[in-house]
Design a protein around this nucleic acid. Structure first.
Lengths: 143, 143
DNA sequence: GGAGATAGTTGGTAATCCAAACCATCTCCA
DNA sequence: TGGAGATGGTTTGGATTACCAACTATCTCC
């Protein structure tokens, strides 16, 4: 197998893996009446209190899309808005206690769903995988 | 770091990686007026000629959703339907030449977008990563 | 203090998705 | 063999997701 083919195979595996994980997340979200995007919103808000624009930027969505997403989640009591004290234009978004509770429960479910796959690897292989994924995630490109 | 924490970190990295790859695919799809789902449809049809229900099952979608997706892609001339010769109820779906051409172009673009990230790894690390992803993708669970 | 930039919402449109209802075809057994 | 039930697809209706353009409110800075 040439290096070229091997790279193709790796990309294929990466994409396949992406869809597999996405499938798990979509399923778990769906079981809780959450779209994948809503799931991501909750995940981001777990340890942050961003303004609407930041949230949209994280997710790669338009501001107006964000408004609707927040509206519906707010109506369900999962998150809330608050005027930013330092900038009268900005609106901070954060989880309500109910949202925190749900997010935590989802975390457990996601973990439970993914662990069996990861358990196919031995402990040191998992360490290795973590080490290999890290550079891929570094936004600075490691330079 | 305990083994428990390490597993959490790995799951976090895996999910983060998933969203990063999804972002790339969504962007490239969008540049070609394709949703992520349409992109997947084309990808699946690359080397298959499934019936509508099979396609829906692959993607985890409802039959009725599939109908609409196929309709729109067919209207764009990317794929076509044909009555299954062995089962009068079933409808086979396959790429048109235009669809094949687009799919191939998308393949190149996706490759080009992901290679820079993967180039952060040395050749043998990429081999290693491929080896670690393989068992995660095996639907039989390797048993 | 006002012109231009920035933050967010609203309204309009298209795509995506599900569920339920529906027709056509197939299976299979009584 | 004929018909009841299962299966494959489409259609319809409704909620969500997503974009863009237009709008209001606030901020920045000359």
């Amino acid at each position: 197998m040439t290096a070229e083919d091997s790279l193709d195979a790796l990309i294929d595996a990466l994409v396949r893996c992406t869809f597999q994980v996405t499938g798990v997340l979509t399923r778990i979200g769906g079981e809780n009446d959450l779209s994948l995007t809503q799931l991501r919103v909750l995940g981001i808000l777990r340890d942050r209190r961003p303004r609407v624009t930041d949230l949209a930027a994280y997710l790669g969505l338009d501001k107006s899309t964000m408004s609707g997403l927040i509206d519906r989640a707010e109506r369900r009591g999962l998150l809330a808005r608050d005027r930013n004290p330092h900038d009268g234009r900005a609106v901070d978004v954060f989880l309500t206690p109910a949202g925190q509770e749900l997010t935590q429960r989802l975390d457990v479910e996601i973990r439970r769903a993914l662990v069996p796959q990861l358990d196919r690897l031995q402990s040191e292989q998992r360490e290795q995988l973590l080490g290999l994924l890290a550079p891929l995630l570094d936004p600075t490109g490691g330079r």
